[in-house]
Design a protein around this nucleic acid. Sequence first.
DNA 1: CGCCGCGGGTAGAGCGCTCTCCCGCGTCCC
DNA 2: GGGACGCGGGAGAGCGCTCTACCCGCGGCG
Lengths: 346, 346
Amino acid sequence: MSRQAPTLEDVAREAGVSRATVSRVVNGVRNVDPAIQEQVRRAIERTGYAPNRAARSLVTRRAETVALVVSGAGDSSDGAQAAFAARVFADPFFGRVVAGIVGFLRPRSVHPVLMFAESAEARQEVLTYLRQGRADGALVVSTHADDPLPALLAEARLPAVLFARPSRPVRLSYVDLAHRDGGRLAAERLLDRGCREPVTISGPLAVAASQERLAGFRDTLARRGHRHVPVAEGGFTLDSGIGSMTDLLAQHPDLDGVFAANDLMAQGACQVLREHGRRVPDDVAVVGFDDSTAALDCRPRLTTVRQPVEDMAAEMARLLDDHIHGARTRPTSVVFAPELVVRESA
Amino acid sequence: MSRQAPTLEDVAREAGVSRATVSRVVNGVRNVDPAIQEQVRRAIERTGYAPNRAARSLVTRRAETVALVVSGAGDSSDGAQAAFAARVFADPFFGRVVAGIVGFLRPRSVHPVLMFAESAEARQEVLTYLRQGRADGALVVSTHADDPLPALLAEARLPAVLFARPSRPVRLSYVDLAHRDGGRLAAERLLDRGCREPVTISGPLAVAASQERLAGFRDTLARRGHRHVPVAEGGFTLDSGIGSMTDLLAQHPDLDGVFAANDLMAQGACQVLREHGRRVPDDVAVVGFDDSTAALDCRPRLTTVRQPVEDMAAEMARLLDDHIHGARTRPTSVVFAPELVVRESA
DNA sequence: CGCCGCGGGTAGAGCGCTCTCCCGCGTCCC
DNA sequence: GGGACGCGGGAGAGCGCTCTACCCGCGGCG
């Protein structure tokens, strides 16, 4: 604060070489005499030099920063953003996304800028941010299917990678899970345990992933002779899991297997079942989805369809990195395979 | 990507004025003829101009960015960072912190850079980041009491504000809660409900906040005639709440009131109590702490000591802003008052 | 009538870095 | 022995912006 931060010039003077030479050893380009290198390194040490990033970015045209955008759909009113942020972070799923992204980015010394884009205004701000060159690209996690942000990003030709396939196709790379296969795995597990009356709590049907999971579950059961599978639509929250399970139990008292489209709802279902005197898994088998922390918090611990979120998030970051550095020019999609994790609940 | 982004120069040429004039209307400084202003604004529109932030930062010496640092204590091994990130985000508490910070920062068009500092190396990276001028200051949320980062920050004279008072005093501003008063509120609630055998599940005693909450709880009970209050030390996780409650129940079967030092543990406690056939709140009253989402997810919904986390986080951001802009030079601490939120569990 | 203030604009000097060009020198090959 | 070439180093031109001069014209005033 008080004294000016040392610049390249200062280090150069201290080391008795030119600015260019110092820059070379700092960035490790070209050969520099080892003796001079050492000399410069000591000068850096003495002066406590740290290269000014703004100056560097100005000439390299690169921020070495990416935006991590959590994007909602509609036009939430102004004040709702805090609630939006809190809601997003309440989902253990998001923590895993962050962990995966940071895992890839950190070794490269880049740190994500956190942005929320739940309103038209906020979306515009994301675009501006990128166009100002404050970030080199965006990693977008949408909470709604009809999020307008991807299209805006694609139109502006800004580097971006999405989590999950967008509802309308856009020229952007994305990573996704084979949700349909996940639904199949859940169905097979319940069937293999001998369930005769399986039911399911789906995610919000506006979300493509929910549709796919449900379709995979239904198709598999249909192929094994179960034509009519009761389904209650949930909202991916614990609360909605409780509500849906209560309804299903009332309408189908002899159900003996539940597939919930995420762990949080499965946890809610377990709670309700226990309160109604049904033992899990002896009376009713429960399969969740995600393999989030909720799966382990639940008693009994959940058998669930694992989504390799960390790997998927890391892959997102890798794709973006490729796009930014021109190593990849056309949009690419990477689809991951789900995996059944067997614990106690089914 | 393809074509160069338009610069001030381009806009100036387009509008038929000088670079400086365009800069003035962009930044809204000094009087510029309204007609010319309009002319410039249209030129900006036509060219799709967005000011280059690196160039601006270079001269203003300001990044208009702050770092949001989640800081651990020890020297976690290299690979542990992903797990650290996931663990941090699993706590609903952190989502509220982010919401509060973003709530303050967003109207000012600044977005936080997310950093984890759970190892010595990572801490160094935070310092470097700030010294490179990539962020103007840091908002630090420590997960451990003896976090070395605050001292490093203070020593380097970098603007920073902490969440919670550091264990060793450092010349840094911080916000905190009157935890002791929170413990008192919990005790009074249990007493007022007529509890005769209160117990408590504390947080990790290495954390100052845990100590304070426990002290406030104990002191209040002592003053009302309860000398020996059974306490089990938890770890702020649901799991530890389950474990602690199980132990307490075994050793003190006639307990009729529980104060858990956070909602997650209270939720675990409720679960155990119900499994042991105790009704909450009729047989055993339960008071949590935080008023996090866990308080609402719990059945029955938790009576809890509310910590105004969003307000506290917003205040952190405000303090940092003041420090950065020189409006505040000496370290300041702001302590918030807890509040009892009565729901069903007590 | 000269002078001064002032509104409204321009010119240009940097901010701290990267990177191209250039230069001097030693080496190698013909 | 001389020219081509490689290598290590320096000089200096920007990158796109802000901001301090400064300039010009005009009205008011002593």
